[in-house]
């Protein structure tokens, strides 16, 4: 009798634990979506703790990948050498052309008094996590000093735009890839200059939307960031138009996301958080105005009257 009672009791406590776990995990879905400072700080802390462990676990996979790509290169060594020589010649010609165009561009900008966008400083970072699963495409990067990095900073590699920073820790930062469904990048079509928005689809390709009705994107046309919204700098390659359908334009990204090892974070000199607030300035944001400030807060009331 007593044994049956104790087994019933343990059964009830097991059931209540299961229910509690279910309820907590259900609410975690919503908590994860709330953009609270505490939630973000917790996520960053956990990422900071787990990232070194991930680095260790991923080491054999990286070694295998390097070995496999090395073997592929060895197999096609001769052909690769010929191809690289030809490419080198072609790139030298492009370099000379680029130098001439850069000088011409600088002179024209000076003549027009156009705003310069060269206040960006690249910081090299190592990609340490996978680009993500089927539901989210983000990347953790290892940076020696994150003091200059802020949310919204563009992340690029030699081929183009990788994504932008959404979380900054002490040694790690998280990058939202342009393939993620939450990513929306304002772009321009390079030849026709029509503006649009490149949307991530959690797939290998991207979608170009919000184009003007009269826009006629051409297959193979380069798509560049437009700089609209002020978050991403203009002129970074995002991809090329791969397919033009009736109601959809498919973009092939410039970056091969499966081969990300090193990336550059384009930091701004003023370290402004381009997505939301600059959290470093929150203290001064909420501080009361000094009594001597004469600026009017509301119609008919000024700071000194309020603080009296």
């Amino acid at each position: 009798m007593a044994r049956r009672g104790s087994s019933q009791k343990s059964g009830m406590s097991r059931l209540s634990l299961q229910l509690t776990l279910l309820v907590v995990s259900f609410f975690l879905i919503f908590i994860g979506k709330i953009d609270l400072y505490t939630v973000r700080a917790t996520k960053t802390t956990i990422s900071e703790i787990v990232a070194p462990l991930y680095d260790v676990v991923a080491a054999p996979v990286r070694a295998f990948d390097t070995m496999a790509s090395g073997m592929r290169t060895l197999a096609s060594f001769r052909a690769e050498n010929v191809r690289l020589r030809a490419e080198n010649e072609r790139l030298k010609r492009w370099q000379r052309r680029a130098e001439i165009l850069e000088s011409e561009n600088r002179q024209l900008k000076t003549a027009l008094g156009a705003a310069s966008t060269t206040d960006l400083k690249p910081i090299t970072a190592r990609a340490i996590s996978a680009p993500g699963g089927s539901f989210a495409h983000s990347l953790l990067i290892d940076i020696d000093d994150t003091s200059a990095v802020a949310r919204g900073n563009a992340v690029v590699n030699a081929n183009g735009l990788v994504g932008y920073v959404i979380e900054v820790g002490r040694k790690y930062a998280r990058v939202l890839l342009i393939t993620d469904v939450n990513s929306k990048v304002p772009v321009l079509l390079s030849s026709s200059s029509w503006p649009g928005l490149v949307l991530g689809q959690n797939a290998k390709s991207l979608s170009l939307d919000f184009l003007p009705l009269e826009a006629m994107p051409q297959e193979g046309e380069l798509v560049l960031t437009s700089g609209h919204g002020g978050i991403l700098p203009p002129g970074i390659p995002v991809g090329r138009v791969a397919q033009v359908q009736e109601d959809d334009v498919i973009i092939e990204p410039s970056v091969a996301f499966g081969q990300l090892s090193f990336v550059s974070v384009l930091t701004r000199a003023d370290k402004t958080d381009n997505i939301g607030f600059n959290y470093d300035d929150l203290e001064s944001f909420f501080a009361p105005l000094p009594a001597e400030a004469q600026g009017r807060l509301l119609e008919g009331v000024n700071a000194s009257e309020l603080l009296q």
């Binding site: 994860g32 956990i46 989210a136």
Partner: peptide, 17 residues
Amino acid sequence: TVLHDIFATSLYNSQTF
């Protein structure tokens, strides 16, 4: 799964549930 959700996806925590 909670730890993995936070680390791997950061924005999306439905895997645990």
